[in-house]
Write a protein that binds this DNA or RNA. Structure first.
Lengths: 340, 340
DNA sequence: CTGTTAGCGCCTTCAA
DNA sequence: TTGAAGGCGCTAACAG
């Protein structure tokens, strides 16, 4: 079975040059005479020649594949990151290939193997908690790599992210600064970043003398809005005096918000809610909730830009980029029709 | 640059057979003697041999790529579909490759070309509104194809979806059945499916004599929760007596819900809200809103299953599968602390 | 059941 | 600036 049928040899014949010249004309046009180039370009257009990526990969020993591994395709957070990545590679000669590790280190290892076998031109992977084997595979890989989402002291190569622990610290401080005295923490889908956020919460809660393990509720279930409601309900039942919650993400925060409304508890007066990521919907929520803004699309863009630089034999100015975060508070108008 | 370094020739040498036998052992183990198979398997494991996918593609003239084209990577709807697709192809020898057409028919055409050049083993594309050129490309493609999301009379090959127009008709009828008299329709990101939903709304509104163009608000902007709030506000200003809205999707519906709360309008008493897709969050929303449930993950699974059947030289029982939809109403408890 | 032969389409290397 | 030779790693097609 042929590909499109038209090969580099066809073009060469029609253009009256050797296949090699066509190959060059396509990849290094400046190393081909203007005359031949023009000739070849015309024939390529006329015949609709398209290089076979597999033959290219086989012959050249390298590819135009940018392998990206993320833990979830349904999570908005990674969808935003991917948007940033696609934005940068769009229109370039590089092809983004997505792998979904489904929050499993083992699956990630298998995926890494699969990808590496394709000799990608570059890789983007999520987080810093790869298995030792995966880390080794990546370190030995004959391509450049960016770890995204988090920061750490031992980057495999390059890194773009922010400190989830610090972000959670700041968010907790923010709650305390706003006058809340008994903050809680709810989290689902315990991945490494969730853990670090919990640590950040605990850091500040302890420092401030408001730490209470009964106000920390976590579960391994995947995050959903519904689950946010359930966890909030559980919180209010086991620690009824909880006056605020830091939620591990915005889905949980939204669920918590709905649960408060269901119970007729005013937000943010009776209960303050702080989410994480500041997804678009948080800006529209009413009553208003706070959230920790992460720069996800920018993270994808930054990582891709750095990778692109290395692909052009250019080093990025810094191998580690901290994108930071922001606590976003919105006008906290209480509902005018308050409950008793 | 070598791939892993170890090739089929290395395995063959170590196992004392010809490369061809190794190749066979890997792809059609039953056509190789038990002894040779065992021998080869051992060597493969010991050397960590991994076939080079590019060499395979080049030599065999076909690939293990399943090309998928969707219009958005950030839209939850497609994330769910993708989850279904990944679920089916996970663990098989097929590799899913995702393309993002960003709601552009031109980009879709370019993407189709790019994918086709890779001789995919199968394709999944979104919708039925491809350009004539794209349709032709797909029709001529040397692989099987499933169109998803919608149904139509002229499938290119196979099809899995549901009727958006009928769904919107039913949803509108549902609002009227619940006693609402002045339903509106809001939509953003006018894609073909959105158009069909609007038609469905208009069908029933006209039939029932409640059609009013001032209660139809659409915009080309992408859907967001914030935008849902804005459109709802606009609706209530230009047609203050609107008593219900069919929203083109759940993001808009959520925004509309928040806007109603901001204005102190009770849902569903003063205003009924119906979304589209029934995303997970809709189950948790309070006050409750109705939504048209679409079977997105199932759609991905069904499409993939059908494709898989054809890849195994098996025809699916039907080339066109209607997955239908459901109107999901939740216990519509009004808030007990009502406003004036 | 196994091996031989001959490419797949392109690119690297080297020589002209 | 151009071309010839050779091979990337694998697999069809055919013999044996």
């Amino acid at each position: 079975m042929k590909s499109t049928g038209v090969t580099i040899a066809d073009v060469a014949r029609e253009a009256g040059v050797s296949p090699m010249t066509v190959s060059r004309a396509l990849r290094e046009p400046e190393r081909v005479s203007a005359k031949a180039l023009k000739q070849i370009t015309a024939v390529v257009d006329r015949l609709g020649y398209q290089p076979d990526p597999y033959a290219q990969a086989l012959a050249a020993g390298r590819t135009n594949v940018i392998a990206v591994i993320i833990p979830s395709v349904t999570n908005n957070v990674f969808a935003d990151v991917m948007r940033g990545i696609y934005a940068i590679f769009e229109g370039t000669r590089w092809q983004v290939q997505l792998g979904n590790s489904r929050y499993s280190a083992d699956l990630e290892e298998a995926l890494t193997r699969t990808f590496l076998r394709q000799r990608p031109a570059g890789m983007i992977v999520t987080g810093i908690d790869q298995t030792a084997v995966t880390r080794q595979l990546l370190a030995d890989a004959p391509c450049r790599l960016v770890q995204i989402m988090e920061l750490g002291d031992t980057p495999i190569d390059m890194m773009v992210g922010f400190s989830h622990r610090e972000a959670a610290q700041d968010a907790t401080r923010h709650l305390l600064d706003r006058g809340y005295k008994r903050p809680g923490f709810i989290a689902a889908r315990i991945d490494p970043r969730t853990q670090r956020r919990r640590l950040g919460f605990e850091d500040v809660a302890r420092q401030s003398g408001v730490y209470d393990p009964n106000r920390i509720i976590t579960t391994l279930e995947p995050s959903t809005v519904t689950l946010g409601g359930r966890l909030m309900a559980q919180m209010l039942e086991q620690s009824p005096d909880t006056d605020s919650v830091l939620c591990n993400n915005d889905d949980l925060a939204l669920g918590a918000l709905f649960e408060c409304q269901r119970r007729g508890m005013t937000v943010p007066d009776r209960v303050g809610i702080c989410g994480f990521n500041d997804l678009e919907m948080m800006a529209a929520a009413y009553p208003t909730v706070t959230s920790v803004k992460s720069y996800r699309e920018e993270m994808g863009r930054q990582a891709s830009t750095m990778l692109l630089q290395t692909l052009n034999d250019d080093e990025p100015t810094t191998p580690i980029v901290d994108l930071g975060f922001d606590i976003i508070t919105r006008e906290s108008t209480t509902r005018t029709f308050d409950d008793k």
